Computed example of a mutant assay.
Amino acid sequence: MPSSPVHLLLAYRMADSLNVKNKADFLLGAIAPDCVNYGQEQASEKVRYTAHIRDKDYDIWKAKLKAFAVDNAEKFADKKDFLRGYLFHCWSDIAWDEAVQPKIFEFLGTLGYGYDDMTKQKWQELYRFNSLAVKSKEYAECTEFVKQGKPVDIAGCSAELISKYAEYVADDYRDKILDEKPLFLNDAHIAATVQQMNEAGYSEELAKL
């Protein structure tokens, strides 16, 4: 799963193709599920899975996302792009896990890391990649949009917590950045995730909201 800066760049690049009208709400939604980790390294699995409308079985996870979109369409009729952004986060988690994460693990294996070290080292590599992502002109525009977005309660995440997390991502995020050159990740992996979103039909699910 990508970091919040990567989620923002993905959302920024795909917004127009997904029929997004309110980019501020969309980009805010695109980081909102991770608000449950705010102030800690990681929330419990139960809390994270609720926020991400998730299941360990990816086929079930995909079905749950589709059902959530249908069940909440009326509730979020006036906040459609926030809902679209929230679901974008989850769909792009899946696309990243399918298109990029296996390659990260394969690379880490060539460095001699074993199974028990993979998850920690994966995040270290993402933190290195964050150091590049947050310096881009695109990212500066993303954070301005995020500050303008209006959160609402959704999937176990309160509007208040989403707002706090958005401020943290836009103005701080220092503890999730390693000022080192990435060993593996680059912009091509963002492009690969976009391609997976489109080819696997996840973009279509979002565009039709």
Rank of each mutant, 00 (worst) to 15 (best):
F129S: 07
M197A: 05
F82H: 05
Y173A: 02
V36S: 07
K56L: 15
Y86V: 08
K122V: 04
A15E: 00
A32M: 08
L27G: 02
D78T: 13
A99C: 09
W96T: 05
N72L: 11
I60V: 15
C35D: 03
Q148M: 13
A133Q: 13
Y202N: 03
L28R: 09
Y139V: 00
W123I: 11
K46E: 14
D55K: 05
V152H: 11
F26T: 00
I31W: 01
E144P: 07
P182W: 01
A192I: 04
D71I: 04
G201N: 08
Q42E: 11
S44K: 09
A192D: 15
L111W: 04
D25Q: 13
A63I: 08
T110M: 09
T50Y: 02
D175F: 07
N19E: 11
V169L: 04
F145K: 04
L108Y: 11
C142M: 03
G109E: 09
E204V: 04
A170R: 10
A67R: 12
Y58T: 13
P33K: 03
L9K: 02
F82G: 06
K181M: 11
Y115E: 15
H189N: 03
K150Y: 07
K122Q: 15
A24H: 11
N130Q: 10
K181A: 15
Q121D: 08
G201V: 06
D16L: 01
M1Q: 09
G39W: 10
S158M: 07
Q40I: 15
Q40Y: 05
S44R: 04
N19S: 12
A155F: 13
W123D: 08
A43Q: 08
V100M: 06
K80P: 00
R84L: 02
K120M: 14
I60Q: 15
Y173G: 02
W61N: 10
L27D: 01
H52I: 05
R84T: 04
F26W: 09
M197V: 04
D93M: 06
L206W: 02
P151N: 05
E106A: 14
A11C: 02
F105S: 14
I190F: 00
A32P: 03
A207Q: 13
K56N: 14
W61T: 08
L8G: 01
I177R: 10
E41V: 11
V134G: 10
K75E: 12
L209C: 06
L9P: 05
S163C: 07
V20K: 04
L183E: 15
G85P: 08
R84Q: 09
R54W: 12
K79P: 00
D175Y: 10
C35T: 13
Q101Y: 12
V134R: 06
G201L: 07
T50C: 05
W96M: 07
D187H: 01
S158P: 14
S92T: 01
Y49L: 04
I31E: 00
L111A: 06
Y115Q: 15
R48G: 12
E138T: 01
E41F: 12
Y49Q: 14
A63D: 10
K150H: 09
P151Y: 02
G85K: 03
R54A: 14
K79Q: 10
M118V: 12
L209S: 07
L132C: 02
